[in-house]
Design a protein around this nucleic acid. Structure first.
Lengths: 232, 232
DNA sequence: AACTATACACGAACATGTTCGTTACGAACG
DNA sequence: CGTTCGTAACGAACATGTTCGTGTATAGTT
């Protein structure tokens, strides 16, 4: 399998009866299918059919589904609104993170992959760079920003995925609380706080909670120094 | 499919030649296979074989793989060390969250599911209850704790999953930074901060970063009031 | 008792991701 | 030019999750 080699697989057919496959072509095709038919149709077989080949051929260029999804997400990130050039850093950081979450929210199936495999590509790197810049502007030290960007993205990802996984908004959170309530209803003695706070746990719109969550993270990052024994 | 009905499927065979299936039996069998053979072997077919039936039979009792995994995780949570009874609340909260993360870390395949489907069951509910208790002890208001527990669990989950998805420790984070570095190496002009901070982003052990992340979240939760316009 | 409704049990079939082995072709070499 | 080597292309096969339809036993009804 050449998918992990440092050089791009290079078709050697001078004039093949069919155009040679390329990684870019596969990703572009997948993106097209995503837009036209939805994420559920982005299968290896569907892509292969569109490229007039067999699914096994794709593995020369794409390591696996996860690799493909990572590339798709990066392409989608490329469509995010650019970072606002002016305004308070916090507001702009919110905008960036919300934009990112919005993409994840729109494509939960792809987003879920993000938890374990970060997208790679220029647009994701731009996102990281933008966040680093805004954290710097907030006054955070380099050390804190370096760790903070990772934590921010992980947490925002998880939250966005959670809220994007249900059909109505907030389904993810409601599922959590509803299930907890089911259990709690059986034993208020055992879960007194949960029973008491169920309504609170269900309150707020996904957007409100997300905004709050971002602030929690930002405030926490700005006020939590890194362990001083960590060496570079 | 009866898996979502309010009543537990109840076999009506007086004395079937084979013992009737039950949800508990399926989960127990899956847990046994998990322990003996690893997560990769916990398949519907493997479970069905162990129960002397066919995989399709399982769907009467288990909605899907995700449902099964949620139950498995709840069972695993039941093996967590109990919440320390004494000591500073922050230390105890760390212990609880670390314990939770440890379970996720050990079973990344299951953990990944947690991002979209929360485990349900008594042990997970106990976890929620414990965190609520500790947040209360920290002085956080009920409103903040109600939202905070969700954010804490989501973030800790994402972080644990990220670090549990690679083989060596920290692989997840290294992948992020390594990939960013690859891109950055092509254009220091375009990603100045990323290039400058790559080493910082790679620094620290997974444990150190996790500990810091928990503190970020805790500090943020304690210092970020909820929007006051939210109604219950 | 006969008939009807219900639901567990589960095989057959299908969709999907992926691996393995084979073929064909171009580059490199003698 | 002939031969060897490396690799793109990709069919066959396999593993897995899941759905659909059928059979059968039991409960409910007349």
């Amino acid at each position: 399998m050449a998918a992990e080699s440092t050089s791009t697989p290079q078709s050697r057919r001078e004039r093949p009866s069919k155009p040679a496959l390329t990684r870019e072509g596969i990703i572009d095709t997948a993106l097209k299918i995503l837009e036209d038919e939805g994420i559920g149709k982005v299968t290896m077989r569907r892509i292969a059919t569109a490229l007039d080949t067999g699914p096994a051929s794709l593995y020369v260029y794409v390591h696996d589904t996860e690799d493909l999804h990572a590339q798709l997400l990066d392409a989608l990130l490329g469509r995010m609104a650019p970072v606002p050039g002016r305004g308070p850093w916090r507001k702009r950081l919110h905008a960036v993170l919300s934009g990112y979450a919005g993409v994840l929210f729109a494509y939960p199936e792809i987003a879920r992959m993000t938890v374990t495999t970060h997208p790679s590509g220029p647009h994701y790197a731009s996102l990281v760079e933008a966040i680093l810049g805004l954290l710097s502007e907030s006054g955070a030290s380099d050390e804190v920003a370096a760790w903070g960007v990772d934590l921010l993205l992980a947490s925002v990802t998880a939250t966005a995925v959670e809220h994007g996984s249900g059909q109505p908004h907030g389904e993810g959170t409601e599922a959590l609380a509803a299930l907890a309530a089911n259990i709690a209803a059986l034993s208020e003695e055992r879960y007194p706080r949960t029973v008491r706070l169920v309504d609170q746990m269900l309150s707020g719109t996904a957007e409100e909670r997300f905004e709050w969550g971002m602030d929690v993270l930002i405030n926490g990052i700005l006020n939590t120094p890194r362990p001083s024994s960590v060496n570079d």
